[in-house]
């Protein structure tokens, strides 16, 4: 090479493939269906997993505790964290705790999914802010806390989970869809910002899934949705967990990507 450019070091293949043995992961929104699937999948692949709430509610904390127990029963290190991901101080404390426990943070999964739907006339500024805070500010603050910690070790895998509504429109979802589209912008910008730090930032754009608040938790709604989907069924969160592991174990040449886990829902007109 004629100039002074030094390529980033080449990675080595992981052996066995898709193993996350020895790595530390934090799943924010770990009590919800996708968070639970991500946390247990990461643990099955060998990672120690911290499971954190998105907004620190009592019910959510109970769910997070139960997911942390599942991680424990898989034989991996586990932490259950009460986190308000919309509050920078709370976020900083949670990330510090993970690094204090395991000395590293390799994987961050932003799995929080705060569904809200109403006609725009009924989305007043405070509702808008609450929806944007939970769905967009929260992953932003978590990336912000993860960045320096991952840069310090020149390694990181950030995986943001978003809804198909990030890329398709449904009536009454203006705030929720805007927030999820925002996460795609966040993903692409940070992928570039940290491209030379060994950190990849990708999004999994998940179709309506089993147990999803408002969309996948009412049998009549599920049936109506399933009828119009190519797969005639909602997404199984376990399949999202497997995709999270695939990205977490990736060698680092996939970044800034939005990958649909939607069983062809967005492949069709």
């Amino acid at each position: 090479m004629a100039d002074d450019f030094i390529p980033r070091p080449n990675p080595e293949p992981s052996d066995p493939a898709f193993s996350l043995e020895g790595q530390a992961a934090l799943v924010v929104g770990g009590g919800a269906p996708l968070g639970r699937a991500a946390a247990t999948a990461l643990a099955e692949a060998g990672a120690d997993v911290a499971v954190a709430t998105l907004r620190a509610g009592a019910t959510e904390l109970m769910r997070v505790n139960s997911v942390a127990n599942e991680v424990w029963s898989l034989g991996r290190g586990n932490l259950a964290l009460t986190l308000d991901a919309t509050d920078p101080t709370s976020v900083e404390a949670a990330f510090a705790r993970v690094v204090a426990e395991w000395g590293r943070l390799d994987i961050l999964v932003n799995a929080g999914d705060a569904v809200q739907a109403a006609p725009l006339e009924r989305i007043d500024p405070s509702t808008w802010r609450a929806v944007i805070d939970a769905n967009l500010l929260a992953p932003t603050l978590c990336c912000r806390a993860a960045g320096p910690r991952m840069q310090a070790r020149e390694y990181g895998r950030i995986i943001n989970l978003v809804s198909v509504l990030a890329s398709r429109g449904v009536a009454n979802t203006a705030a929720y869809a805007a927030a999820h589209s925002g996460v795609l912008g966040l993903t692409r910008a940070l992928a570039q910002e940290w491209a030379r730090s060994g950190i990849t930032v990708n999004a999994l754009q998940v179709g309506f899934y089993e147990g999803q608040a408002g969309f996948g938790d009412d049998p009549q709604q599920v049936e109506a949705l399933a009828r119009m989907l190519p797969a005639r069924a909602l997404i199984d969160p376990a399949d999202v967990g497997a995709a999270v592991v695939a990205l977490a174990a990736d060698s680092g040449f996939i970044t800034g990507e939005v990958i649909a886990v939607d069983a062809a829902a967005t492949a069709r007109v």
């Binding site: 695939a246 970044t255 939607d262």
Partner: peptide, 25 residues
């Protein structure tokens, strides 16, 4: 291998770029 395996059961019709971040820049 991932796409060929059951671990990609949720993916259908998708194109994944493996390009070092080129297309998102």
């Amino acid at each position: 291998v991932w796409l060929a395996s059951d671990a990609a059961a949720g993916l259908n019709g998708e194109t994944i770029a493996q390009d070092g971040g080129g297309l998102s820049a």
